[in-house]
Design a protein around this nucleic acid. Structure first.
Length: 269
DNA sequence: AGCTCATGGCGAG
DNA sequence: TCGCCCTGAGCTG
């Protein structure tokens, strides 16, 4: 269940372990068989992450486009450990490691021009060195949509998902209901800088950890609790539990069909 | 064995 | 705004 840090981590791993030689590409589940045959025995030129998009640029071949969606996964597993519904299976040249794709929202070959179209529609990705946040700011400062909604908009903040949204707003003491046009330049710059920080940590660790050392439950004299997603967070999925900073119960509500968490006391508009 | 939920995003209404 | 798609995990019986 992936936000942008997972996609960048996958690209990093693919580039490290799957570029030594030709890949073996199959679709055990069957729904990608024809396409897998077209890339089978070709080397991987490079894998690229942009927001939640993952591109596999095949040497002398097409580009594979993967979007994991909510429940998709790409796992690196031993070659003899084959289970479940595998849409795309890549085995590296040494036959030592398999990359198994299950439950993706999208897995297909791109037509000419499609790659450019996807890149063109994407917002700025805090995990990419070539990201330009000033373009995002120009849009944010003109809209009456809330920052809680804007952070989930992949045409603005590419790669940010529900956890990073909740956590960065908490860390900066910003209410998710603050309108884009009400946001100060300082607040926007702080949001961008914070996303760059916490998302890079996520790429390195494979978890979403956002709680500062001095706010860890132990330091605050409270019981530690790691969320099911595997990281230590301030508000995500902590509805009804005390805020680590002020003790107020964390609030949960559904915003545009997604779970939103925030501290009503620490995050005033 | 069956239900529910999930860190997404699409299209219909 | 809702229903729906994809799959696995963690409950409940």
């Amino acid at each position: 269940m992936p936000e942008g840090h997972v996609i960048h981590r996958l690209a990093r791993r693919l580039n490290a372990d799957f570029r030594a030689g030709p890949l073996e590409a199959t679709s055990p589940q069957g729904r990608f068989s024809g396409s897998a045959a077209l890339i089978d025995a070709h080397p991987l030129a490079f894998a690229e992450a942009l927001g939640k998009h993952l591109f596999l640029h095949i040497a002398d071949g097409p580009t594979v486009y993967i979007h994991l969606g909510l429940i998709g996964s790409l796992r690196f597993e031993p070659v003899d450990d084959v289970w479940g519904q595998i849409r795309l299976r890549l085995v590296n040249d040494e036959q030592t490691l398999a990359a198994n794709l299950r439950g993706p929202q999208a897995c297909r070959l791109l037509e000419p021009g499609e790659y450019e179209a996807i890149v063109g529609k994407s917002g700025a990705d805090p995990l990419r060195a070539d990201a330009d946040p000033s373009i995002v700011w120009q849009k944010v400062t003109k809209t009456k949509r809330s920052i809680g909604a804007l952070l989930m908009d992949q045409a603005l903040f590419a790669g940010v998902g529900n956890i990073y949204r909740a956590e960065t707003l908490f860390r900066l003491g910003i209410s998710p209901f603050t309108l884009g046009r009400e946001l100060s330049a300082e607040q926007f710059d702080a949001i961008w800088a914070d996303l760059v920080d916490i998302m890079h940590i996520g790429v390195d660790t494979g978890r979403i950890d956002t709680v500062r050392e001095e706010h860890m439950p132990e330091a605050m004299g409270r019981d530690a609790r790691v969320d099911d997603h595997g990281g230590e967070v301030y508000v995500y999925r902590r509805a009804g539990m005390p805020c680590y900073l002020c003790g107020t119960e964390v609030v949960h509500q559904v915003m545009q069909g997604r779970n939103l968490f925030f501290c009503p006391r620490c995050q005033q508009v």
